[in-house]
Design a protein around this nucleic acid. Structure first.
Length: 126
DNA sequence: CGAGTGACCCTCA
DNA sequence: TTGAGGGCCACTC
């Protein structure tokens, strides 16, 4: 059961949003982040996906339905999604048909001033 | 050249 | 010490 996401931690809110995606459907970082109430934290979504493996990470795609993963993980994701009935168009998914739409998006206004400088780290190459 | 995105990081309590 | 939370920047199109 999902409570008001405004009372849940950010990671939990994001995780809850991810769990709201039904089988056979996919979502994007921006959509998840916005659904969770943190439209600017698309990166945090990735962090949750990596940290919490209780989520259907396979249903989370990058913008445009692209797979943000790399290597065999991308192939695995595609395989799992195809098993759910999601059709791939080359390297992408047709979000127009498979993107899950959240019934309600809670507008949360975070007025906290915590972390400032974030990751400057370069992206991993493969 | 500009806009958009990201499977992370760092900083604060 | 750990937990929680938020954002900047490099890279792609």
């Amino acid at each position: 059961m999902l409570r008001a996401n405004s009372k849940l931690p950010m990671a939990q809110a994001i995780a809850a949003a991810i769990r709201r995606v039904p089988r056979g459907r996919v979502s994007t970082y921006g959509a998840i982040a916005k659904a969770a109430g943190y439209a600017r934290c698309a990166r945090q979504v990735a962090r949750v996906l990596r940290q919490v493996h209780d989520l259907p990470w396979q249903r989370i795609m990058g913008s445009g339905g692209r797979i943000s993963l790399r290597g065999e993980a991308a192939l695995e994701q595609r395989f799992l999604l195809e098993a759910e009935g999601v059709r791939f168009k080359g390297r992408r998914v047709d979000l127009g048909e498979f993107e899950h739409r959240f019934p309600k998006i809670a507008r949360k206004q975070a007025a906290s001033s915590s972390g400032r400088r974030g990751a400057k780290r370069l992206r991993p190459k493969l």
